[in-house]
C-alpha cells in the first residue's frame, strides 16, 4: 500500500508542476494578429446580395487593406487614386456576399474594381497568376465589376495575356456611389460546378484573396489615367467563411475537468486510507 501511495503522490506532484508550467508558459502564445484576413460571418436569413446599403452589412467586420500602384509589369503606373479598400463579407452556408468600399472623389463610367482568388491547391502569383520560374503555379479567378457595365464578369487568368471571361458566369455585382465613396457588392454560390476555374469556398478554410481598383477619371486630353495594368493593387491576403459553430471543444474540456476531479477524489481517499 505504501509504495502505491508514494507513487500517487509523485504523480500528483508532477501533474501540478506540469499544469502550472503549462499555464505560465501558454501566456506568451496569445500574440496580436494584424488585420490580414476578410472574415465572412455566418448568417441565417437573407444575404444582401445586391444591396450595398443594406443594414445587414453592419453585422460584418470590415478589414482594411493598403493599395499600391501596379509596378510588377508594364505598363506601370506611378500613382493611383485609391489608397485603401475596406472589405466585409457575409455567408449563409450556400452563398457568399462581399462588400467592397473605397474613397473616390468622382463617379466615372469607367470606375472598376476586382477581386482575385487563388484556385485549387497550387500557389498563384498575385499578378494574374504570372508563371514563376522555380515553382509550378496555379490559375486565378477574377471577379471584375465595372460601373458602366453594371454587372460582374467572372474571369480566369494564368499569366500575362491569358485573362479571359469564363464560359460560365457565376458572379453578380452591383455598385452604389454616394458622398465620395463606392460601395460594391459581389456575390456568388460558395461552390460551383467548375472547380478548375472557379474558387471553391469551404467554410472554415483560409483562401488567398487580392484586390484591384481602377479610378475611371480622364486626363486633360480625355485619356483614361487608370486602365488595364495601370491600376491600384493589393498583395495576397486571406479570406475565410466562418464554419458553423463547433461545440466539441467544450465537451472535451468538461470531460478533462471531470477526470481531474475524479483523480483528486481517488488520490485523497488513498492518502487518507494510507494514514
Amino acid at each position: 500500500m505504501k509504495p502505491a501511495t508514494q507513487m500517487m503522490k509523485q504523480v500528483l506532484r508532477g501533474g501540478v508542476a506540469v499544469i502550472a508550467a503549462m499555464v505560465i508558459g501558454s501566456v506568451p502564445f496569445s500574440f496580436a494578429q494584424e488585420s490580414v484576413a476578410v472574415r465572412a460571418t455566418l448568417v441565417t436569413g437573407g444575404l444582401p446580395l445586391d444591396d450595398p446599403n443594406a443594414a445587414a452589412w453592419s453585422g460584418a467586420v470590415p478589414a482594411t487593406f493598403p493599395m499600391s500602384p501596379q509596378v510588377h509589369w508594364p505598363n506601370r503606373i506611378q500613382e493611383v487614386t485609391v489608397k485603401d479598400v475596406a472589405v466585409r463579407a457575409l455567408h449563409d452556408g450556400k452563398q457568399v456576399a462581399f462588400l467592397l468600399e473605397y474613397s473616390d472623389p468622382t463617379q466615372d463610367p469607367d470606375d472598376a474594381a476586382a477581386f482575385e482568388f487563388m484556385v485549387g491547391d497550387k500557389k498563384a502569383h498575385f499578378a494574374h497568376g504570372q508563371p514563376m520560374l522555380q515553382v509550378e503555379g496555379g490559375p486565378v479567378n477574377i471577379w471584375f465589376w465595372k460601373n458602366k457595365a453594371g454587372k460582374a464578369t467572372d474571369m480566369t487568368a494564368k499569366g500575362f495575356g491569358t485573362l479571359k471571361a469564363q464560359e460560365h458566369q457565376d458572379v453578380k455585382a452591383s455598385g452604389a456611389y454616394a458622398n465620395g465613396t463606392w460601395k460594391v457588392v459581389f456575390s456568388r454560390n460558395l461552390s460551383t460546378d467548375h472547380p478548375e476555374e472557379d474558387v471553391q469556398i469551404t467554410p472554415g478554410q483560409f483562401i488567398s484573396i487580392a484586390f484591384a481598383v481602377w479610378d475611371g477619371r480622364k486626363d486633360a486630353v480625355g485619356e483614361l489615367v487608370e486602365k488595364g495594368s495601370q491600376k491600384a493593387v493589393s498583395s495576397w491576403w486571406y479570406f475565410r467563411a466562418d464554419a458553423p459553430p463547433d461545440y466539441s471543444s467544450y465537451m472535451y474540456a468538461a470531460v478533462a475537468a471531470a477526470l481531474a476531479l475524479g483523480f483528486q477524489f481517488v488520490l485523497i481517499r488513498k492518502l487518507k486510507k494510507g494514514q
Binding site: V23, A37, F206, S249, Y250, Y252, V255, L261
Partner: peptide, 24 residues
C-alpha cells in the same frame, strides 16, 4: 486548489482543441 485544478485542466483542454482564428 481542489476547485481550481480541474478548472485549469478543463481550460487547457479547451485551449488545445478549440479551432484557431489565426490565418496560416
Amino acid at each position: 486548489v481542489l476547485v481550481l485544478f480541474p478548472l485549469l485542466v478543463g481550460w487547457q483542454t479547451y485551449g488545445s482543441t478549440a479551432s484557431s482564428d489565426a490565418p496560416p
